[in-house]
């Protein structure tokens, strides 16, 4: 599903070049649940952004579902990621001015889903995540765990093939974190490809494969 060859990413400031990612070669198949670990500054988030097409590599090739993403322009990339990729953030990144219902509905708007279909899809997800009662509340009125639940709901409403989660439980209490991780496990069982970044060894145990980054290189890549 994902093929990265010789991917590199660096920042230039004056004469200095700071490497963030170097010589990354990865192949991720459909249905895998990958955990990316590593200390701060090892390039985890950058790797996620590259895979999620929010950022462009400075070198190397990136194939997503056999499409050469590194050759695409912004419009085509946007198109690809809007149909196949869902994001979950550590800080939830819900839109404060929208209700739970509207937050979940937003990706469908950008996909041009018809109103009636949208209603059905949002209702189904609300029901599945047990947040029907909360649908008219604003993010500020929810607990962290509930917000992240909405974040996940929003990420998967479009039935993406790939779910990217950047420290999804980083801001949560352990019990809430566990709830989110169980949700991921369930989604994985249903066949969704998931890549998560985490510092937490416990969370890593939910995955099927562990990639450890250090200083921009892949240090370890093993099946769990």
């Amino acid at each position: 599903m994902i093929q990265l060859s010789n991917i590199e990413r660096y920042y230039k400031s004056g004469p200095l070049t700071t490497w963030v990612l170097r010589d990354i070669n990865l192949r991720i198949r459909e249905g895998e649940f990958v955990t990316v670990m590593g200390p701060s500054g090892s390039g985890k988030t950058t790797l996620m952004n590259l895979i999620g097409m929010l950022d462009e590599p400075d070198g190397g090739e990136y194939f997503f579902l056999n499409e050469p993403v590194h050759k695409f322009n912004e419009r085509k990339r946007t198109d690809l990621h809007k149909h196949y990729i869902g994001f979950v953030f550590q800080a939830y990144h819900l839109i404060d001015e929208l209700t739970v219902y509207e937050n979940i509905e937003t990706p469908l708007l950008y996909r041009g889903v018809k109103s009636a279909d949208r209603k059905a899809m949002v209702a189904e997800v609300l029901d599945r995540f047990n947040i029907v009662a909360k649908k008219d509340l604003f993010p500020g009125q929810l607990s962290g765990g509930q917000q992240q639940l909405v974040g996940v709901a929003r990420a998967i409403i479009g039935k993406p093939k790939l779910l990217l989660a950047d420290e999804p439980t980083g801001n949560l209490h352990s019990s809430q974190g566990e709830m989110i991780m169980n949700l991921f496990a369930q989604l994985h069982r249903e066949g969704m490809t998931i890549i998560q970044v985490t510092h937490n060894e416990n969370n890593a145990r939910y995955g099927t494969r562990l990639i450890e980054l250090r200083d921009g290189f892949v240090r370890e890549d093993r099946t769990v």
């Binding site: 999620g52 929010l54 912004e74 419009r75 946007t78 990621h81 809007k82 149909h83 994001f87 990144h93 819900l94 839109i95 404060d96 001015e97 937003t106 990706p107 950008y110 996909r111 929003r154 479009g158």
Partner: peptide, 14 residues
């Protein structure tokens, strides 16, 4: 800007 970012992630074009 955060809202803009979120919207872009969710597939909003320029």
């Amino acid at each position: 800007v955060r809202e803009v970012g979120v919207r872009k992630v969710m597939g909003a074009g320029q």
